[in-house]
Design a binder for these strands. Structure first.
Lengths: 334, 334
DNA sequence: GCATGTTACGTAAACGTTTACTCAAATTTA
DNA sequence: TAAATTTGAGTAAACGTTTACGTAACATGC
């Protein structure tokens, strides 16, 4: 169907080696032949075949990114950063939705192994032994995004969750709040759960406030509905709080909606601070003050790390990205 | 590095043809050899090489999807549906962020041509002659998502924008509104711009209401900030409207935020209906009534169409997906 | 006992590149 | 001018599969 390097060679009356050379700009040919070859390529509409190239070079110019959930703002921001830099390297990105499902993830890894992807980005996912073994057998560079592994020596790029939670809580205190509640998300989550709780506690302790178990409520996950359901519980347990630290923007949004339903005004009656700085946080009423993870940047940093590993083959240092407070209007100054 | 079919063959003492046959379950081998081969495969950790396979079969088990912007809720919902069904077919999806940029899109198409992707999904993008020619030269199935082409015979899956806009406007009238404004988005947009305006006008006419140019304001695009900026303008032009139809949920969210700032209560003082039914619309305060496009479904339908085209090689009928009104709390009953 | 079919496999070509070797011709150097 | 070097190019192997074709061994039917 489509023409091959042979067709080009025949048309110009040179060998395929020569065509290959001009294709790759390797020199070893005259200006004249180069022109003729280039011309024939255009004329025949020749497209190099990536299969053949891959077979020789053992390189696919493709990286894969695995998400527990592709269709979240969190994921798509990261994806944006990744796509941008990967495209800059002339590669493409394959997206995989693991649904945090072990079997599905393994099936994906198998597929990616067969496709010989050049690198893998694992987002927000904890690495099991099964995954790690598979990854090892693939001899493919991996970097973790917004997660890390205590078990396995995989480089990661993420924010320091505990520190960021500390900063958020501390911000609330700086604004004059002393009775601060928290909606924690899933506390079993080793990355986004406990560390944020720890940061919250530590900020309290740091200012000499005692932590009260009643001031914290643990939701199932980090979603809007988790926030929606949790605020009433929190307020029942701790009616005297003046501010809430939500472990995600989605939770914060849910809490704000919940407050609205209960006739509680944000920030007049209750202040709330989120975590993530997703696009929704600007759309919130009132706009949500939050601690920002530079998600898009994290995506691009992670992708760059991947390419460094691919090219240099060297072990890469993990990278803690700095978080910042984005002040909007959901926190009242007492 | 990794072992090949030859290694497996050697280990079991059969020919590579036999290994290939059991690999593909083609029959022509005994139970005994099958077991031995399977065993050796496991033992050696053999992974079929997709390059070699692709070279022979001329099939990549990969489809590509092009978005003007990957990191929007709109895109990610579609991507979700696509990914799900593509994965079901044992293929993977490559995502491309065109940024609505011609050169970048062409570069992507070139890349995809070299990679011999089995199909291409074009989302929310108008097809230029340049794109179409390239697409033709690739002999690759294409389906358009949330867009269509009047020029070129490309199958599409989308909602009927004019009809959906009609339905939204009509809903407002059914709720008792007679003075209805619109924030249109980019009116130059052939797909999401003018048709929605037309639907709005037609609904008005259908109920014998006369259209007033003052009741409509055209923003640059379909984003939150477009809505934020446009509502004040609309209200200045048409202070007496009781409801507004926003051409996207993002615009609607912006309008709601803008109203909040101006002290206008939704829906008491002003009703608003959106378009898309993005996740943000439930997070809105108040939750946004909107006309839903089944985005995830559209993604999966489009992907299925692609596979039909790949397998049957036949021309596929375009598909108009049905829209529905999602009633939430942003529209007041007069 | 022979013709025919079936089963279970092996051989080798083909897919479209890249690249290590060659090598003649042209050019430079001594 | 002869030797040495550079330039421009060709030949063929290799990458890891699939598959058309060939063929022993064995079974079946009469």
């Amino acid at each position: 169907m489509s023409s091959t390097i042979k067709d080009v060679a025949k048309q110009v009356n040179v060998s395929i080696a020569t065509v290959s050379r001009v294709l790759n700009g390797q020199g070893g040919y005259s200006k004249a032949t180069e022109a003729k070859v280039l011309n024939a390529i255009k004329e025949l509409g020749y497209q190099p075949n990536a299969f053949a190239r891959g077979l020789i070079n053992n390189k696919s110019n493709t990286v894969a990114i695995l998400f527990p959930e592709v269709s979240s703002q969190f994921s798509s921001k990261i994806l944006r950063g990744v796509e941008e830099t990967v495209h800059g390297f002339g590669s493409s990105v394959i997206v995989c939705n693991t649904a945090s499902h072990g079997q599905r993830t393994m099936k994906y890894l198998q597929l990616l192994a067969e496709k010989r992807v050049d690198g893998i980005l694992f987002v927000s996912e904890i690495i099991t032994e099964e995954y790690y073994d598979k990854l090892e057998s693939m001899h493919t560079p991996v970097v973790l995004v917004a997660t890390e592994s205590y078990q396995y020596p995989l480089p990661f790029v993420k924010v320091d969750d505990k520190h960021a939670a500390f900063t958020a809580t501390d911000y609330l205190m700086k604004m004059g709040h002393h009775k601060i509640g928290m909606i924690s998300g899933n506390k079993e989550d080793i990355i986004a759960g406990q560390p944020r709780i720890d940061g919250y506690k530590q900020a309290l302790a740091n200012k000499g406030l005692t932590f009260d178990e009643k001031n914290i409520v643990h939701s199932k996950g980090f979603s809007f509905t988790d926030g929606l359901d949790s605020l009433p519980n929190l307020l029942e347990q701790a009616p005297d709080i003046t501010a809430v630290f939500a472990a995600s923007d989605a939770i914060a949004m849910g809490a704000i909606s919940s407050a609205y339903k209960m006739g509680i005004k944000i920030p007049e009656d209750l202040s709330v601070i989120g975590y993530d700085n997703l696009p929704i946080s600007e759309m919130s009423i009132p706009p949500l003050t939050t601690v920002a993870q530079p998600l898009e940047k994290m995506g691009s940093v992670a992708a760059n790390m991947l390419f460094s590993m691919m090219n240099a083959g060297q072990k890469i240092e993990s990278r803690i990205m700095s978080h910042t407070i984005i002040e909007r209007e959901s926190v009242r100054i007492l």
